[in-house]
Design a protein around this nucleic acid. Structure first.
Length: 820
RNA sequence: GCCGAAGUGGCGGAACUGGCAGACGCGCUGGACUCAAAAUCCAGUGCCCUCCGGGGCGUGUGGGUUCGAUUCCCACCUUCGGCACCA
């Protein structure tokens, strides 16, 4: 740039490669575990970003995600904490398997090739990661412990196998967990899912529903919307189970309702088409054909269709007895009642439930009002829909009439309980987590099916159950593992007889539900992790990732942690104390996607401008939690800034000014203000764009007064403050300033004494409008400030003939003269 | 439909607890350097008016509270996200 000055040009490529090598050689970011049996003296911080799926290509979302974590980790480490910041790969799963099917070859080869590629790109970004703790979920050394944990869950009854209606993705040829179905479509491929009844493996996450809600109180800082989404997903609702009877069949049919106070308004009864009682109910009746026909048609409807069409159903010809008044009401079958929720049957109260009302309207069923809104003085109109409201009272409900709704609920439930016709219950929307998948590239389920002994766990000594080698990965409705006949055929660990291995593999979300624990103790070959070491590092202090896992991964990991806590494997109940969701980086107005051709590749920019400029830019763009738009010209601004800083440092080295700043000067004060701002912004506010602005301001100030006695001090501080954001160039400049190892240098602390000002700019307002600004001594009294304002000629012009009726003084800020 | 978040210059954004709206950066305009260009540096840059002193308006829209509102309250508009036959 200025070769005639002999100043070396800022060349990010060389600098970045050099410092990455130094960090590796010196194991700069390796953190040892506290020695056995002794808790480390140093306070710890666990900074973690969500486990990446190794697609082979790093994208901008990763860059933002890991750079955020990097800044936090650097600052924490330089503030004296032992910082755990590991990295690994969520390597099992469909993308690698599908790529292998498409291109031929083995999913493992695809996955490992991708890992190599993405690791190289990550290292290029210079993140301060302890690479010695790297793990990948597809390695037998890892999935051995996934299996081990599965068996502990199995022993404790957290895992079970049952036949149940499940969601099936016809494209991926596998079942899905409820959480992986979005609007009736497969979360991965968007194919409409089908309903099937299959025998599958489940985690009993529903047993933890209440704790997943209640223990949110243990979390330090999670985005409110994530908590809301989880609460909605769990869907806890308090109500009652009410038992209706069909005497002719000697059958009891319980329903769940949140409105037991409306029991007298039940005018019909509805069973889900899948309800097991339906065939017996209509057997040999004139309605049999029509009802079974309806059931068949409902079964063929897609979830989407079922949810969007007009409500329909068929009468069964049977009646059922309302336990409170003995009334006989007709039983219908309709698919607006879902088998998965409650008991698969409802009492229909059309006057007080919109869905029941719509159904009653269509089929001309009676509508009986039994609750009147607050302040109803005349008898309620019959046959209409009455929305739920505060202060409502029961009517036409025998002895319960007149009770306010909440008391009515209580009284009716008490009566039901006394008569053995019901009880208070809580229903959840949350379903158990379906964990088995009919695909190859996943963790094998370590179970043996024995004709004599049933489901037998594989003994711990035989773990891992390795994935068998097969020729064909294409799924055909059953797991490709089933084709490895020799592998499938085994002996029962319990009785020694012939037995067959489980051929389903686990949902990859199982792998990622405990990876944050493996990082504590990644090479342990006797246990998934040592409890002491886990209890030292965990819970994660700062977790960072995308909002897409608001329910899926985050709910599963919380469940796993709680179950492990119950089993005595860990001493804490929540895995992630603070959660941060970064926004998405868009380009050309849309989410980056290969199919749209608008992907901005980080590597390209790292090569062109350096990783430091890229890291700075993704943070400088705007608030980290907001979605934002990539601008090529934007990164050029950060490039320019680094060049400017580079020149400034060299100029200061040339000048050789004193490193210690004399106190009291404007530049010295600005420097301390910058330290305070940069530190506070990250630590308290978790914002990353304004600290960069603050350092830019400081650099601008230095450039304006390079001969200031505080210039050298200001320059060194700027380099030190920018280190978490642009670590390579900061390290290089630090060395050129005559120091070493900036990453080990304590984080700067602002000197309170230097922050104090002797004068300030007093803003003078007249009737709320700024009319003048004057310098004022910091220690002036309120009266003196008002005098100063009154004497301002500019303010006077606006006071004119009027009199000052009031003066508002904000100390060290402004005076507002109210003139009337 | 319900719940939530957001709306500020040409653009990304700042203003943290009700007290100077537009920090920082991009872009643009003018100038310096150069044979020229790039790079760099300097100055300017919300809109309107101006006698060049300054004045008026301005944070989605309309109202309110207040000495004072981007910030608090009410209503509405727009965008985005979540939930949505859950009994």
């Amino acid at each position: 740039m200025f070769p005639e000055d002999g100043m070396e040009r800022y060349d990010p490529k060389t600098i970045e490669a050099r410092w990455q090598r130094v960090w590796d050689d010196e194991r700069a970011f390796h953190v040892p575990n506290p020695a056995e049996g002794e808790i480390s003296e140093r306070e710890k911080t666990y900074v973690l970003e969500m486990l990446p799926y190794p697609s082979g290509e790093l994208h901008m979302g990763h860059v933002l995600n890991y750079t955020l974590g990097d800044v936090v980790a650097h600052m924490r480490r330089r503030s004296g904490y032992a910082v755990l910041r590991p990295m690994g790969y969520d390597a099992f799963g469909l993308p690698a398997e599908n790529a292998a099917i498409r291109e031929g070859g083995h999913p493992r080869v695809v996955a490992e090739r991708n890992i190599e590629a993405i690791r190289a790109q990550m290292r290029r970004m210079g993140w301060a990661i302890d690479w010695e703790r790297e793990v990948s979920t597809h390695e037998p050394e890892y999935y051995r412990w996934t299996q081990w944990l599965f068996l502990r869950f199995f022993e404790h009854g957290h895992t079970y196998r049952k036949e149940a209606p499940v969601k099936w993705c016809p494209k991926d040829q596998t079942v899905l967990a409820n959480e992986q179905v979005i609007d009736g479509r497969c979360e991965r491929c968007g194919t409409e899912v089908e309903a099937k009844s299959l025998e599958q493996w489940f985690f009993r996450i529903t047993a933890y529903a209440d704790r997943l809600l209640d223990e949110m109180s243990l979390l330090e800082d999670w985005p409110e919307r994530v908590l809301t989404m989880q609460r909605n997903w769990i869907g806890r609702s308090e109500g009652a189970e009410v038992v209706f009877r069909i005497d002719e069949l000697d059958a009891e049919v319980p329903v769940f309702t949140t409105r037991p106070d409306t029991l007298y308004g039940a005018t019909f009864f509805v069973l889900a088409p899948e309800h097991p009682l339906v065939p017996r109910l209509v057997e040999g009746t004139p309605q049999e054909r029509e009802v079974l026909d309806y059931v068949r048609r409902a079964g063929a409807r897609s979830t989407v269709e079922r949810e969007t069409k007009e409500k329909d159903g068929v009468p069964t010809g049977r009646t059922i007895t309302n336990p409170v008044n003995g009334e006989q009401i007709p039983v219908w079958v309709a698919d607006y009642v879902l088998m998965e929720y409650g008991t698969g049957a409802i009492m229909a109260v059309p006057a007080h439930d919109e869905r029941d009302f719509a159904f009653a309207e269509r089929y001309g069923l009676p509508v009986r009002v039994v609750v009147e809104p607050a302040g109803g003085d005349s008898a309620p109109e019959q046959g209409v829909f009455v929305a739920h409201s505060a202060g409502e009272r029961l009517v036409d409900s025998e002895q319960f009439s007149g009770l306010p709704s909440p008391e009515g609920k209580r009284a009716i439930v008490e009566r039901l309980e006394r008569d053995g016709n019901g009880k208070q219950v809580i229903a959840y929307r949350l379903r158990d987590w379906l964990l088995s998948r009919q695909r190859y590239w996943g963790c094998p389920i370590p179970i043996v099916h024995c004709g004599a002994c049933g489901l037998v766990p594989v003994p711990e000594s035989e773990l891992p159950v390795l994935l068998p080698e097969v020729e064909e990965f294409l799924p055909k409705g059953r797991s490709p593992l089933a084709a490895a006949e020799e592998w499938v055929r085994t002996t029962c660990p319990s009785c020694g007889g012939e037995a067959r291995r489980e051929t389903d593999t686990m949902d990859t979300f199982v792998d990622s539900s405990w990876y944050f624990l493996r990082y504590c103790d990644p090479r342990n070959d006797e246990a998934p992790f040592g409890r002491d070491v886990a209890d030292y590092w965990l819970p994660v202090n700062q977790y960072i990732g995308g909002i897409e896992h608001a329910i899926l991964h985050l709910l599963y990991a919380r469940f796993f942690t709680k179950a492990m806590n119950d089993m005595g494997l860990v001493g804490f109940r929540e895995p992630f104390l603070r959660l941060f969701n970064q926004g998405m980086i868009h380009h050309l107005g849309a989410k980056m996607a290969k199919s749209k051709g608008n992907v901005v590749e980080p590597n390209l920019y790292a090569d062109r401008h350096g990783a430091d400029a890229l890291r700075l830019y993704v943070l400088f763009m705007g608030p980290a939690e907001q979605d934002k738009e990539w601008q090529d010209t934007g990164i050029e601004g950060t490039v320019r800034f680094l060049h400017r800083l580079w020149r400034l440092v060299h100029e200061q080295v040339e000048r050789g000014g004193p490193a210690q700043a004399p106190s009291g000067g404007a530049l010295a004060r600005k420097t301390h203000e910058t330290i305070a701002k940069v530190t506070d912004d990250v630590q308290r506010r978790f914002v990353f764009n304004t600290p960069i602005s603050a350092v830019m301001e400081l650099v601008n100030e230095i450039a304006r007064a390079p001969e200031d006695p505080a210039a050298r001090f200001a320059t060194e501080t700027a380099v030190s403050l920018i280190q978490p954001y642009a670590p390579h160039v900061a390290e290089e400049l630090w060395q050129r300033l005559g120091h070493e190892r900036l990453w080990e240098e304590p984080w700067p602390v602002a000197d309170e004494a230097q922050l104090r000002r002797e004068t300030f700019e007093l803003v003078i307002q007249v009737n709320g409008k700024v009319r003048d600004r004057v310098q004022a001594a910091a220690d002036l009294s309120r009266e003196e400030l008002v005098e100063l304002a009154r004497n301002s000629p500019r303010a006077r012009a606006f006071i004119d003939g009027g009199s000052v009726r009031q003066a508002i003084v904000v100390p060290r800020k402004l005076v507002n003269l109210v003139v009337g």
